[in-house]
Design a protein around this nucleic acid. Structure first.
Lengths: 203, 203
DNA sequence: GTCTATATTTTGATAGAC
DNA sequence: GTCTATCAAAATATAGAC
C-alpha cells in the first residue's frame, strides 16, 4: 500500500502528463487522491515542489539506468548501441515522467530549473563522449557532436509520445528500429545499395 | 505597419513560446500590444482562438512549403532529401510557431484539436508515402513506416529547440547534417567502414 | 477600435480545529 | 494527517461609454 506522499506523485504524474502542469490544479490532484486540497500541503510545500520532485527523480533514474547499462563496455559501437537502447527503453517504460521532464521545465523556479538542466546536461555528455570517441576512431562520420547528440536523443524520445503499452509493438522491437537507424546514421563509410537504382547513391 | 490583429498574433507567438499557453494571460498579451485586455476581445473571441489561429496558419504554411518544394521531383531519394531539408528549414526559420504547434495542442477545444491533428496527419502522410516508395524500390531498409516517419520528423524538430539565429551555424549547414543522417539511417545496403575497426560492422 | 469598470470563477496557499 | 474555512490575487470574459 503506497503512502499518501507517493499517491500524490502518482496522480500528479498522470495529470501533468495528460493536461500539462499549468492546466492542472492542486484541487484536481487532491480530488483524485481522495483528500482535500489543503491536505496536499502537509506532504509538499507547493505545487512547484511536486513538479520538481518528479523531474529530479526521473532524471536521476534515467542517468543511473544508462550508467548501469554501459558498465564494463569498452567497444565504442557497443556502447552506442546500448546507450540508444537504454534511452529508448527507459522512455517507453516511463512514458509519462519522461514526457513531463521534457516539456514542463518552464514550471520550475529558476534554482530548480538550473538543477534539472544541469542533470540533463550531464546525461547528454555521456552520449557526446561516445559520439566523439566514435568520430576519433574513424567509425562515425564526423559532424557537430552536440547537434548529433540532440538529434539522437530527440529522435528516441519520439517513441514515448505515441507508444501504447497495450499496442501491437513491444518495447524491444521499437528499440531495435531506433538502434539500427541511429547506428546507420552515424556510421562513416560507403553505402553499397542493394536496390535496383545503385547509381543513386551519393554517400 | 501591421494591423492590431497581426500585432496580437506576433506578441502571442512570442509569449506562448517563452512561457507556454496556460502560463500566459490575456492581460500580458494586451500589455505588450500597448492596449487594455478588454480590447483583445474586439479582435479575437477568446484566448483559445488566438492559439488556434497560430496553429492553423503554421500547419497550413508548413504543408504548403513542403508541397511546393517537392513539386516536379520524381526520384525517391531526391524527394526524401528535399522533404527533410524543407522540414528543417521551415522549423529553423519559424522556430516559435513550430514549437507552439508541437507542444501546445492541449490548449485547444476538442473540435479545434481534431482539426489541427488532421492537418498534421496529412503532413506526415507525405513523408510516409516517400518512405514507403523507397522501401518498395529496395532503396530504404524495410521497417515500420509510421515509426520511421515520426522518428525523422521529431529528429528534425530538435534543431528548432536549440537553434540560435544569431549563432555560429547557418540554417543550411544544419539542414545538411540532418539530411545526411536521415538518408544514411534510411538506406538499405552494406556499410563498408573506413575506420580502423572494420570487423565491427554488423550490416 | 479602445477605454473603464466589473462580473464570475478559480487559483495557490494558510490558519487552526480535531 | 486530514479537515473546514478563508484569504488575496489573478484569471477569462462581458457591458457599455466614448
Amino acid at each position: 500500500m503506497p503512502s499518501m506522499k507517493d499517491t500524490i506523485i502518482g496522480v500528479a504524474i498522470d495529470l501533468f502528463h495528460r493536461q500539462g502542469y499549468f492546466a492542472t490544479s492542486i484541487s484536481e490532484i487532491a480530488g483524485q487522491c481522495g483528500i482535500q486540497k489543503a491536505s496536499i500541503y502537509y506532504h509538499y510545500p507547493s505545487k512547484e515542489n511536486i513538479l520538481f520532485h518528479i523531474q529530479q527523480v526521473t532524471m536521476e533514474e534515467l542517468t543511473a539506468y544508462l550508467r548501469g547499462n554501459l558498465e564494463g563496455l569498452t567497444d565504442v559501437e557497443d556502447r552506442m548501441r546500448v546507450a540508444v537502447r537504454s534511452h529508448v527503453r527507459f522512455h517507453l517504460n516511463r512514458q509519462k515522467e519522461t514526457f513531463i521532464a521534457n516539456t514542463e521545465l518552464r514550471g520550475l523556479t529558476p534554482e530548480h530549473y538550473q538543477e534539472i538542466v544541469d542533470k540533463r546536461d550531464g546525461y547528454e555528455k555521456i552520449f557526446q563522449g561516445i559520439i566523439r570517441a566514435g568520430c576519433e576512431a574513424g567509425l562515425f562520420a564526423t559532424a557537430d557532436v552536440r547537434i548529433l547528440s540532440y538529434a539522437i536523443l530527440t529522435l528516441c524520445n519520439a517513441g514515448a509520445i505515441w507508444f501504447n503499452p497495450q499496442g501491437r509493438m513491444a518495447v524491444d522491437a521499437i528499440a531495435d528500429i531506433y538502434e539500427k537507424f541511429v547506428l546507420r546514421g552515424l556510421k562513416a563509410g560507403r553505402l553499397t545499395a542493394l536496390g535496383p537504382t545503385p547509381a543513386n547513391q551519393t554517400g
